[in-house]
Design a protein around this nucleic acid. Structure first.
Length: 115
RNA sequence: GGAGUAGGCGAGGCGGUUGCCCCUUCUUCUCUUCGUGAGAAAGAGGGGGAGGAAAGUCCGAACUCCAAAGGGCAGGAUGGUCGCUAACAGCGACUCCGGGCAACCGGAGGAAAGUGCCACAGAAAAUAUACCGCCUCAUGAAAUGACGGUUUCGCGCCUUUCGUGGGGUAAGGGUGAAAAGGUGAGGUAAGAGCUCACCGUCCUGGUGGUGACAUCAGGAGCGUGGUAAACCCCAUCCGGAGCAAGACCAAAUUGGCCCUUUUUGGGAUGGCCCGUCCUAUGGGGCGGGUAGGUCGCUCAUCCCCUUGAGCAAUCAAGGGGUUAGAUAAAUAACCGCCCUCGCUAAGCCUUUAGCGGGAACAGAAUUCGGCUUACGUCCUGCUCCAGCC
RNA sequence: CGGGGCGUAGCGCAGUCUGGUUAGCGCACAGCGUUCGGGACGCUGGGGUCAGGGGUUCGAAUCCCCUCGCCCCGA
């Protein structure tokens, strides 16, 4: 199993974003919300959305890096291929790495059940 | 101990696991106009990968497109002088004024071209005026204080007080942010630059300086308050928009234009057919252009060192260096050892163990030169003031 | 990344260009009146760091500079 995050595995197209916003299922977490939908590809894709209201550019970049690390190191926890949109909330600034990890695992379990 | 100023650094080191962006070499693969030509993916190797402010977007430029013969108006910017710079609202040196005991810091064209404004208060806020006051002349009234007359009455004159009118004056006056040169002496009916001395102001000339200006001499009694971050005047500068600029390639769909001598249908002409014309549809082509992609895209008015010129900013010559180019946007999670700082305990003067810390402000987005703002128990030089030895 | 605008009482706005006398208006709030009581109505009243800091001026919400926050536009 690889832990890479190649350009293919990211959501970068405007159409794909609006498709997710329209048709995706939602999960509400403590530090972030998820919008997700199963896709027809053989792999999952993800993107992180974080508003300017959450913090400065430095803080936002760090959170994006952490969320991407969570995704790529835990791809095996997803049973099938999904498009996942992670929307960070203001509360994420107080979260430590371990708390983020737990919240992310809980979110993945929720996705598995809903399927 | 307090303060001022100039500058530097921007943060621990080594190694490891997984992972990201760019460049490059090789192998494999695909396309091919068969030229090892092009392309993208995978694997392996190598190299590079945020800042002093990358920030705010406050100025100035490069670059690109639009417009444009040239000039002017309008509008905007700058504002002591001289210099530096590609340019600037930047930088350096100097001048004057103001603040501070001082090191040092801050400010800067014109109010005598014109217009406007200066609330309240105050006589007056700018062509000085004349309310109170001071002086004087004329006149009216009162007063028995001095003198005179004798028609013993305020009758005459002087004096004093009060009033009216004319004139002189700007010394003094509550106010106000600001009051018409200041202080002293002379002078005068009272006063006044009316006169004089000193200070200030203005003008002329000499000397020094590229210049702002400084200094000296002479003259003018002095006629013009503040505000130009009010309009304005003077001098200098400025065309507009901005890399989401702009250039190229270009799917699908809709509409546009052209062709259809061999798609099919409708209409007109005609008795009917052929033919001709119009129109719809199909086919083919064309240009514009959206999604998307490529270029612009990083080596440029750059940085460092030495020597020379200059007080300096900076310039010249020589040598060396090159260090991100992403586009839903690249550095994270964690471990080990060493170094270092703080606390606690043992130990007993130098070690051991444990815990915690090694930051703050902050993330390139076309590029560069500045300015401004944010930041640290950080480091260094120089200087000033106070106290003690 | 670039361009533009706004910030005044609890809320919505004037006043800013052209500086001056107590910074006003509506709703809301408080008290009194009216009513059996409430609403509506009438009378009275309180409430402002004019986003923050510095400068120009005798004097700044207003003019100039810096900072902060919010909003809009450009493929």
């Amino acid at each position: 199993m690889n832990e890479t995050l190649s350009p293919q595995e990211r959501i970068r197209n405007k159409k794909e974003f609006s498709h997710l916003y329209k048709n995706g299922s939602r999960y509400r977490g403590k530090y972030f919300n998820l919008i997700y939908a199963s896709n027809d590809l053989s792999f999952s894709r993800m993107a992180v959305v974080i508003s300017k209201k959450v913090g400065s550019a430095v803080r936002r970049n760090k959170i994006k890096r952490q969320m991407r690390a969570l995704f790529r190191r835990n791809k095996n926890l997803l049973e099938s291929s999904f498009d996942i949109l992670i929307i960070a909330k203001k509360e994420i600034l107080e979260a430590s790495w371990l708390m983020l990890q737990e919240d992310y695992f809980a979110a993945l379990r929720s996705i598995g059940q809903n399927k």
